[in-house]
Nucleic acid binder design. Sequence first.
DNA 1: CGTGATGTTGAGGTAGGTCAAGTCCCGTGG
DNA 2: CCACGGGACTTGACCTACCTCAACATCACG
Lengths: 262, 262
Amino acid sequence: MRDIYTRKSPRSGDCLIDKMGYYLELSRQDIDHLADLQRQEQTWRVRDVVREMGAPTEMFYVVKTGWCFSYTIMADGRRQVLQIHHPGDVIGIPDIAYEHAVTGLQAATDICLCPFPKSRLDTIFTDSPRLTALIMTLGMIDHVVLLDRIRTIGRMNADERVAHFLLEILSRLRITNPDVGDSFELPLSQELIGDTLGLTNVYVSRTLSLMERAGLIERIDRSIRIADEQGLRDMADFQDRYYRIDTSWFPGGALEKLSAGA
Amino acid sequence: MRDIYTRKSPRSGDCLIDKMGYYLELSRQDIDHLADLQRQEQTWRVRDVVREMGAPTEMFYVVKTGWCFSYTIMADGRRQVLQIHHPGDVIGIPDIAYEHAVTGLQAATDICLCPFPKSRLDTIFTDSPRLTALIMTLGMIDHVVLLDRIRTIGRMNADERVAHFLLEILSRLRITNPDVGDSFELPLSQELIGDTLGLTNVYVSRTLSLMERAGLIERIDRSIRIADEQGLRDMADFQDRYYRIDTSWFPGGALEKLSAGA
DNA sequence: CGTGATGTTGAGGTAGGTCAAGTCCCGTGG
DNA sequence: CCACGGGACTTGACCTACCTCAACATCACG
């Protein structure tokens, strides 16, 4: 199911550096830059709103611990969850095009984020073309994951949507934590999952129960075991967008060639 | 409905330069770069497939004339249209993260595209930080438009989806052609509109008929007149993502300040 | 003139929504 | 320590927005 693609930098225990280092051999300077983004920390409790829709977009955030999510709400209360953010993710880049945030940001668990001002990216852009290319590429991965989501919501039925969702979470987790195996904690309410997939909490509940009875997954509290990964992949037409990316065009090719043999 | 935001460079008749120039005061060199991307031209007929899903991603395309669209197809034939591309759009940037195209590309009308290799962007990146920032920002606009689409498909019913879709097309057209007023040619089959919005061709037909009977739109063949723009905006909770963007953080601030008074 | 792509309309079916009741769990406060 | 309240999950009964299938009309094109 997975081939021999290998992590490019050793794990450090810092999730941003781990995520970046999964794709790229990081220089000492790159690591310093990434550490620099995480000097400030701030915590929120479950269900706290970190940033309202329409707030000025001065800050980006790096997720240090916990899960949070971006969403929009319509006047009558209908909510659509747009993205789930995990440790190591950088939040806010799409907002650079606008003066006010187009999405809200809320804590799905207790979380610790590292806010940093837009301007901090400038130094990275001028100092490290490789890191810049990686940041852009990670943005494009997010983009492609959104395309998958559109296909999922637009053309798949409930069980296919849920299957795809679970697999997407799993592959995302595997980047920073290769040891997850086939089970993981899913600290998201079924209402939130429904608002992500264009379903209701009620139907998510029914669907998960059915999938469990069908032997596709197992559940204990909020932990999920993917019992039949290939079965889920087949039904959801799933492709892993995180596992392997194309870095061949990145600047600084010499370094790249060195690590390509790994 | 629209305030006094003004185009930053004069119209040139070239749609890529017009689109870029709408947001930014372009230098002579910038214009040369953009013209350079469009040296090669190639044409396709309606329904021709320009690029299959899974094809190697060596080329980007600038749309010169006509409309085309990106899509995915599932094994059983279900299709999801992901993006409609208009003259002036650059196609393919999300694919840089992968070696093979994650979407297909097909002509919705007879079209003329300008293919150019990935590497051609390099020179822009090193020569013009302002243009680079604009290209990134346009990518982020696409991203936000996708977020709107997800909300539309995930949480709105058929008439709201169609209303939102029509308004989105209209605001996109207004960038390069401020004279569209309230009517435009919509050279898209109802099946394609359905595949964009997660509906069937049959239900798109019914919905359009209902909207016409309600006095929201008028139709003659495939031309659409938006008869009640405010009404449509209210029902679809529409926000124009193309009209105005934040360029305040772009490098080369001096030039920006000069034009800020406009 | 035939063929295929497109749009319209009708009849009937179903996936998923809505509403509601009941359970479990955990955090808080007395 | 217990009582309470709110968040989360489950299950049942009923409903409806949208789908499916099908027939028919129109039009462009070779």
